[in-house]
Design a protein around this nucleic acid. Structure first.
Length: 377
DNA sequence: AAAATAGACAACCGCGGCGCC
DNA sequence: AGGCGCCGCGGTTGTCTATTT
């Protein structure tokens, strides 16, 4: 399909924006909202294409942008989310309030990627580069589990994006009024303003991820995320998730190691059930996560973003041998039942622990390299 | 002090998705 | 159903500044 250029290239200015141009754009959007980006430059008296105006507004002029150095917590959030979501910067940005996808992308490319590389971690796969068996065991159980968790989160993010789009329709069809100004304390209404009012809860996977790390180190920490309103009631319950792949390979300092080992032992003989949204995961003694097939929803068209309350997020530890799951489907589609058992029993699973240990040991080093601990970990 | 190099960040480009007609 | 236009995303490039030689 042929495409018309986004704008007439002739006579339009490119390159860095001048303060005067910024002022024009800012003044116009304050007064009229951006409306159609394509039509905006002419109306605002700018010799720019609409796309350039949009970029300038979203990445620089928007009033709700936080600039400056990334905090350690933000860095770790980016690393974790990148491990889950890959280069989906806009999705990652939804978890970092007031940061733009462009800023996060730049920060990743100029700082975090290099740092992980220095630590011997492949910034793409988030696995140790030096692991000779890496390719062979790359599709390990918890990697597959995390992959499914990521898919789940992706579906949620897509739904969020849909909501954002819908919100923006409201914004466009309802240009700024006096009420808007009153409501926003004089600030112009914008995407973030609308989003803030309707922002869905998210970060479930990040929560679980953080739980893995928390449990790995045996530390009770505040896992509150910057954006999620979800709360896990007990850190011990988070440790239930931590059983995923870290039973015996806790790393860090000795006391943490001992603590982690102790917690790990406490998990023996337990079956964990995790219910997020109406999506139920259970983990067996081997630490594998199971999804209840009947409740597994990935379609962004369904209302998975609606009204997650704390009650919707439950972590339940119950006694049992883990054999009583009905109609369950392992989250990984890579193995049939027999293979799963042999996988757990034949040592490959333990090799997987080593992967995780190396990776998280590196992350721990990263954290330790800083002056203070992040509240995330 | 000047040139070269590296780092950081802003901005651009092209593609794909989505909605409208 | 398919063409078209718009928007958003991710990759890449350009530019400015800081550091090194």
């Amino acid at each position: 399909m042929g495409r018309s250029p986004c704008c007439e290239k002739v006579g339009l200015k490119k390159g860095p924006w001048t303060p005067e141009e910024d002022q024009k754009l800012l003044a116009y959007i304050e007064q009229h909202g951006h409306g159609s980006w394509r039509a905006l430059p002419a109306k605002a008296g700018l010799q720019r294409c609409g796309k350039s105006c949009r970029l300038r507004w979203i990445n620089y002029l928007r009033p709700d942008i936080k600039r400056g150095k990334f905090s350690l917590q933000e860095e770790q959030t980016i690393i974790q989310l990148h491990a889950l979501l890959g280069n989906r910067w806009s999705a990652i940005a939804t978890h970092l309030p007031k940061r733009t996808d462009n800023e996060i992308k730049n920060y990743w490319n100029t700082h975090l990627k290099k740092r992980l590389t220095k630590m011997g971690i492949d910034p793409v796969t988030h696995k140790p580069k030096t692991n000779a068996l890496g390719s062979a065991i790359g599709q390990t159980r918890d990697a597959a589990n995390l992959s499914h968790m990521a898919q789940w989160e992706s579906a949620r993010l897509e739904a969020e994006a849909r909501l954002v789009r819908e919100s923006k329709v409201l914004l466009v069809t309802n240009p700024p009024s006096q009420d808007h100004h009153q409501l926003s304390g004089g600030q112009i209404p914008n995407k973030a303003t609308v989003l803030a009012a309707s922002r869905p809860q998210c970060l479930d996977v990040l929560k679980a991820w953080q739980g893995v790390v928390s449990g790995m180190f045996g530390i009770a920490r505040d896992l509150e995320s910057p954006t999620s309103t979800l709360n896990f009631p007990e850190n011990n319950n988070m440790l239930a998730i931590s059983n995923l792949g870290f039973n015996e390979n806790c790393v860090g300092n000795n006391s943490l190691q001992a603590s982690c080992f102790e917690k790990s032992n406490q998990m023996q003989g337990l079956k964990e059930k995790i219910i997020l949204d109406d999506h139920e995961m259970t983990t067996d003694q081997g630490g594998a996560i199971w999804f209840q097939e009947s409740s597994f929803r990935t379609s962004a068209h369904e209302n998975i973003i609606e009204g997650l309350s704390e009650d919707d997020v439950m972590l339940v530890c119950e006694s049992g041998d883990g054999a009583g799951h009905h109609h369950q489907q392992q989250s990984s589609s890579l193995m049939d039942g027999e293979d799963q058992n042999s996988y757990i029993n034949n040592g490959a699973y333990n090799a997987n622990f080593e992967d995780n240990k190396n990776y998280w040991n590196s992350i721990l080093n990263l954290v330790n390299a800083s002056a203070t601990w992040s509240p995330v970990f």
